Simulated assay, not measured.
Amino acid sequence: MGDDARRARVGVLYALAAFFMWGLAVPLHFKLLSAMPPLQILAHRIVWASVFALGLIAAFRQGRQLIETVLSGRRLLLLAVSAGLIAVNWLIYIWAVNSGHLVQTSLGYFINPLLNVVLGVLFLRERLLPAQIAACLLAGAGVLTLGVASGEMPWVALALACSFAFYGLVRKVVPVAPLVGFCVESLLLTPLALVYLGVTFADGSAVAFQGDLRFDALVVLTGFSTAAPLIWFAAAAQRLKLSTIGLLQYLAPSGQLALGVLVYGEPFDWVDAVAFALIWIALAIYTASALRTGSRPRTPAVARR
């Protein structure tokens, strides 16, 4: 086996590991923490992700880059904005997983790549090909189908897609390495998380670290389940064509959809099937267009989920 083939094979394994985490392991992890309020899960996730990220910064000797980023006013300001966006995304995702809305989370992350295209046009002056316009219109029709049939728009899916798309837009313009940026975002959120957790311990509402060692271990592991897929995704991106990464990214929301319907019995009727079919067709058109033109589906740091 040649070096390129071996490199690609390793890259695929890294990508599959990352998307397995996001599609199956992460939602299952949060399901096991369902006894804890979503805001407490979020706060612990931030704190332990910061600890894990700092460990990785030390292991990969990126301390100088971290300090330079913190001392850069513009980059720090933009990362503060992206930190706020990803915190909102995480909170909605945690609440949705533990409230029986895994199908909507999968819908949100299926919509996300197409919403990235729209933001690229609006804010980065990118130009759309006719096939990409058709894909966006089809995806919009899928969302509208759900809204008309249910009498309300799928707000969970839209909130996840929008918060993550705007997060990706901000991170796109920040010249910082993925691990360093993730670490700074986590550190910016950590003081608020620690204050909130301090309040929960003071008023007796804290769920974690009350004597259940198994549950406490699951809480601490939120740092790993948050940061590890990011590292694996970055390793895959270094070894694979970007178009391959773009195609593999759909494994994660597919896993969430299967988990919601097959394991947790969330409703999925013919209206959902029609809406998802429109979005899947849109993604197929968009991906085929990207492959033909030698570009890739826009997949900004999916690892932040």
Rank of each mutant, 00 (worst) to 15 (best):
T244N: 03
M153Y: 13
A87C: 13
G260P: 08
L13M: 12
G100H: 06
R296I: 05
F201E: 15
L194H: 03
L33A: 12
F60H: 11
L194I: 14
G120H: 03
V174P: 13
G63E: 15
R75G: 13
P191K: 13
G246I: 03
V302I: 08
A159W: 01
L218E: 12
Q238H: 12
L102F: 01
V81R: 03
L160E: 05
I57L: 15
G63R: 14
F164V: 10
R214W: 11
R45T: 09
N112K: 04
G108K: 08
T69Q: 08
C136F: 00
R127T: 11
A234I: 04
L259G: 04
L124I: 00
G73I: 05
F182S: 10
W155L: 15
A177K: 13
T244E: 08
G204R: 14
I245N: 01
T145D: 03
W95C: 07
V173W: 04
A25K: 02
A139F: 09
V173H: 08
L122P: 11
L247M: 13
V207L: 14
A165V: 02
L85T: 07
A8L: 09
F30T: 04
I57T: 11
D269S: 14
L278N: 00
R305P: 02
R64Q: 15
D272V: 02
I281T: 05
Q249L: 07
T222F: 05
A135T: 08
G55W: 01
T190A: 15
L24S: 05
N116M: 09
W48G: 07
L91K: 10
G198L: 10
A228P: 10
L248A: 04
A96N: 03
L115C: 01
L24K: 07
K172T: 04
T69L: 09
A141T: 07
P154M: 09
E152S: 15
I94L: 11
S150T: 10
A134P: 06
A58N: 06
R9F: 14
A131Y: 06
D272P: 02
V103C: 03
G55C: 02
A8F: 03
G100Q: 11
A157T: 01
G108H: 05
P178W: 12
V156T: 10
P27S: 05
A25W: 02
D3Q: 14
G255T: 01
L248G: 01
A206F: 13
F276A: 04
R125F: 03
G11T: 08
V103S: 06
Y250P: 04
A5P: 00
V118F: 06
A139Q: 06
P27A: 09
L257S: 01
R7K: 15
V121I: 10
A59K: 12
A282F: 02
P175F: 14
G168H: 04
L242K: 04
L259R: 09
R214V: 07
H44K: 09
V219W: 10
S82I: 05
I67A: 14
L54M: 13
L188I: 15
E185I: 00
L128K: 07
S50K: 08
V143G: 07
V156I: 15
P300E: 02
G63F: 11
M153K: 07
A5E: 12
R298T: 09
E152N: 12
T190N: 02
V170S: 05
R127I: 08
Y93I: 01
D3W: 09
L262D: 09
L213V: 14
G108C: 04
F30A: 08
V220Q: 06
A159K: 02
T200A: 14
A258R: 01
